[in-house]
Design a protein around this nucleic acid. Structure first.
Lengths: 215, 215
DNA sequence: TTTGTTTTCACGGAAAACCGTGATAATTAG
DNA sequence: CTAATTATCACGGTTTTCCGTGAAAACAAA
């Protein structure tokens, strides 16, 4: 008799976690060794129990502290032999792309049926990656539509400053808060304005709000 | 031996549906007679199988076609004897309020543990409504915060000017566009700032965007 | 008809934003 | 190890916003 596969499940929604656990508990070949609500919990466990065999980590994308994308990246970095299956509510093309680039072994939506979930798990444990046809299609579409939006990328500092600007802080106040010269903040302002193709503070603020950068 | 309770579960995410089904399948006193992905499916079933006893409908809030709030309202209208338990991802105070007003028998978040879920179901089947302490708190907060926000009303002109401000036009430009003195627009600016309790252009813009005044 | 709201206009000064035109480290990517 | 990007700082000038303090006319509501 083969030893069962050891898997870890991470999802911040307890009910989903319980549900998934119930589903997989029925499978004799699967042994759930941990269920966690954050990526950090998972990492902590893996790092401590290095002697414990872990075959697969099933993780949600949206989690507090450390989300599924990050968790996947760290696992692939530190423990490349551990397989990962990412499960998500949304079908976010960008995140899927990031995940494929970070070598996640599979991605399915929470819209997937139980049978598809099991299919994905078995494929991955069998050594094959699994991305559902639906997901593949979204990826393809993203490839094309992505070209129409030249995707403006902001650096950490730029993002930080932009947030504060949109939160009604003045240049001087932001400078004080970040222990920088007001000239520096002014530079960021200018760069942001030209980078984002807006005219003034109103444009910057709209950008920040519409991209959901606040809160 | 008592006859088991008949319940229906509705959620557009198959995986969650399967999970919930697995959890409840363990309970002998519960008999799942239908799982559905939309509110309309549930309604259709209930309306046709009028001879079939239905004790409880567990429904997600966010569903296509007909969401949980609507489904709850219709059920309570047509079949007041059927209990309802609403499960949701978000803890949206407004929706919870609507639900209590529509006589939903319970509301829990997907963050809830399995034990809380079972507790809620048993309470409701036993004839008691169930709203978790956490949800109650959110409701209370909403009550207060709703009153503290005395709904700011803007006049036509104020709205018009605010829109233009948020669209990156300067005072002078707005004045030209509306054939008014720039002093007039400045007045509106000031009034808007104090009326909306913001500090500057960024605040005005955020207000406009968040209230969906643009486009 | 008096009271309140909305719309309109005015001035001056202080503060902040915007613009051009730089430059020097530090870090990161190829 | 270069090349590119990022992060930092500087200055002077112009434009715009912000603030206080008004006020008159039009209109709606009580």
């Amino acid at each position: 008799m083969k030893t069962p596969f050891s898997i870890i499940i991470a999802d911040d929604h307890a009910m989903f976690l319980d549900g998934l656990t119930s589903i997989l508990a029925e499978e004799k070949s699967i042994n759930i060794i941990l269920t966690a609500k954050t990526g950090t919990q998972v990492l902590k466990y893996i790092r401590i129990n290095t002697d414990q065999k872990v075959d697969l980590v099933i993780t949600d994308i949206n989690m507090p502290e450390m989300d599924g994308v990050e968790l996947n990246a760290v696992i692939k970095e530190e423990f490349p032999h551990i397989k990962t299956l990412v499960v998500s509510m949304l079908e976010d093309a960008k995140k899927i792309k990031t995940l494929t680039e970070a070598n996640a072994n599979g991605y399915i939506s929470k819209n997937a049926e139980k049978t598809e979930l099991l299919k994905a798990i078995k494929s991955i444990l069998g050594g094959q990656n699994y991305f559902s046809p639906h997901i593949k299609q979204i990826l393809m579409e993203a490839m094309f539509s992505a070209k129409s939006e030249p995707e403006i990328s902001l650096s950490k500092r730029e993002t930080e400053v932009l947030k504060l600007i949109a939160q009604e802080y003045t240049t001087q106040e932001i400078a004080d808060q970040l222990f920088l010269s007001k000239h520096t903040i002014e530079s960021y302002r200018k760069n942001l304005i030209s980078k984002l193709g807006v005219r003034n503070l109103a444009g910057l603020t709209r950008y920040a709000v519409e991209k959901g950068m606040l809160k």
